[in-house]
Amino acid sequence: MDALSTLAFSLIVITAMVILIFRDWRINTAALTLQYLAVFYLVTLSWPIGLAIVKLIVGWMATAAIGLTCLRQIDFDTPAEPTSSLFFRGLAGLMIILVMFVISSTLQETVFPNVDLVIIRSGLMLVGMALMQLGTNAFPYLTIMSLLSFLAGFEVIHAALERSTLLIGLMASVNLGLALVGVYFIMKTNERTLVQKEEEDK
């Protein structure tokens, strides 16, 4: 594992933990942006930079769409949480890290013998954390972020298995489509908040 791979892997673990623990959209958007940078580097281990950069651009576009929509909304701040919630999610995240470390070697031996361990580990970390996130929140924007993380994790591993221009194009469409669905959900929430406020004012 070279230094850059280690750095990318560490960045993935940290950003995935941040997205899992915190609910603030600003922190999560920043974390997702960094996460896509790490994903980009890991994809370059399997694909030429010219193709791998599609993942970075698409990822950043998706993050920007969600982040900018959150920025434009009123009253979008999530309610304050007790420290115990953060602690619980942090603990759950640590458990996921442990589980993924244990299963990644076995998975490499049995299913993906030709794939670098750092790629499998990073992909599994993203998938595991995203699944945990999906199971512990009901915020539309966090759900979309988790799904984007989940797909990024899958793409890291799948990039090492298959390369096809159509697949890259379709995956990019799916990622952007998910981001647009996220924007749609955020706008819906805001529209309702506005209507409720107007009714209260009257």
Binding site: A138, P140, L170, G177, V181, K188
Partner: peptide, 26 residues
């Protein structure tokens, strides 16, 4: 690759199941 087309169809089905005026339900 059909999986990706089906996924795209799923994404397009969201507005018809959850229109803009309605609340996003779980």
């Amino acid at each position: 690759y059909a999986a990706l087309f089906i996924q795209a169809a799923i994404l397009f089905s969201i507005p018809m199941l959850s229109p803009l005026q309605s609340k996003t339900h779980p």
